[in-house]
């Protein structure tokens, strides 16, 4: 029996460690499927997974799209930029309209934190949060955890540094919530202006010095500088950021011997990560992309693969 019985996946804050383990272990056979010649199993035939993104994204949406297709689900996409949303339709009406067309899962990205939670409470569809404002991006954190587990063989007790704009990063928050359930030692590294106040309360150590922050760590998760989210005054200049916080190959000598580097993509080479490091075998960014499809397959399977009656709200 599977341990994952939720209607929705909204974040990693309120999810149990056992549920995360169920997703990560199910992703292993899913990854086998995407590496073979026939990349399709009939499991979710007759189910549909609709993607609704209120922010730009190609990779996350394509990843969900392929994850659904590999499991034989149909994966239509509602393009917000060309839809009635542009004519002023409310979120609630958009969701109701989609629901009446009958998809089983709604994958949603929205610039407002909490929007998928609101939708989940008001629809019978399963809702997967593909990023809400500066709150959470659970599937990204799960694929990060899978990638770490694949390279390191464990999560328990690892030292992980998350580097960059912590303030605006839903990836950082989901990683913190997820990894802290596995007893990882978590550090956040970045300029103090981009560090949320009271972040220590999430059980992380705060560093404003990159070299100190990555000393001895097993994993460095380099965040993308989201220029679209920067308010004036918080972000130093690109040059200053690059000087103080760009992670370079030579920094690896400060970290643990076999430390790996993650990046959620798309990379700003030469700003938060050097090109040389991005190309090195220690950087797992390409594996992360493949693992993302496997992890999303696992989530869709666990949500839709069983019967309906035993799923708890």
């Amino acid at each position: 029996m599977s341990i994952y019985r939720r209607k929705d996946l909204l974040g990693l804050r309120d999810i149990e460690r056992e549920e995360i383990e169920a997703i990560l272990s199910t992703a292993v056979p899913m990854k086998d499927i995407i590496t073979r010649d026939v990349k399709k199993v009939p499991t979710l035939k007759g189910k549909s997974v609709i993607t609704l993104f209120y922010e730009n994204s190609t990779r996350t949406r394509t990843s969900f799209d392929l994850a659904g297709r590999y499991l034989s689900a149909d994966t239509p996409n509602l393009a917000v930029s060309t839809s009635s949303v542009q004519k002023g339709e409310s979120l609630k009406d958009t969701i109701k309209t989609i629901e009446m067309m009958g998809p089983d899962v709604l994958v949603m990205r929205h610039p407002l934190s909490g929007a998928p939670h609101y939708v989940a409470r008001n629809t019978s569809m399963h809702v997967i949060n593909a990023g809400d404002g500066i709150n959470e991006h659970p599937t990204q954190a799960l694929l990060d955890m899978y990638s770490i587990l694949e390279r390191k063989g464990r999560l328990e007790g690892l030292k992980v540094a998350i580097v960059g704009d912590i303030l605006h990063s839903r990836v950082a928050r989901s990683n913190i919530f997820g990894l802290s359930k596995f007893g990882c030692e978590l550090r956040v590294v970045g300029p103090s202006t981009l560090m949320p106040s009271n972040i220590e309360k999430l059980g992380v150590k705060v560093y404003t010095d990159l070299k100190e922050g990555i000393r001895g760590v097993d994993v460095i998760n380099v965040l993308r500088i989201q220029r679209e989210r920067q308010q004036s005054g918080l972000f130093p200049s690109i040059d200053e950021y690059q000087e103080l916080y760009m992670v370079r190959t030579e920094h690896l000598s400060l970290a643990a011997d076999d430390a790996i580097v993650l990046h959620p993509g798309p990379m700003n080479r030469g700003i938060e990560i050097s090109t040389e490091l991005a190309e090195s075998s220690r950087c797992v960014v390409n594996e992360q992309v493949a693992n993302g499809v496997a992890v999303r397959m696992a989530i869709l399977y666990l949500m839709l693969g069983g019967g309906k009656d035993e799923i708890a709200g």
């Binding site: 029996m1 994952y4 169920a22 199910t26 009939p42 499991t43 666990l302 069983g306 009656d309």
Partner: peptide
């Protein structure tokens, strides 16, 4: 061979059964 993903009775079951590797 793990046949879980090919079963024809998944929707009649409770939660999705555990998938193992082939």
């Amino acid at each position: 061979l793990d046949i879980t993903l090919y079963r024809d009775d998944l929707t009649t079951l409770g939660p999705a059964p555990i998938v193992h590797r082939t």
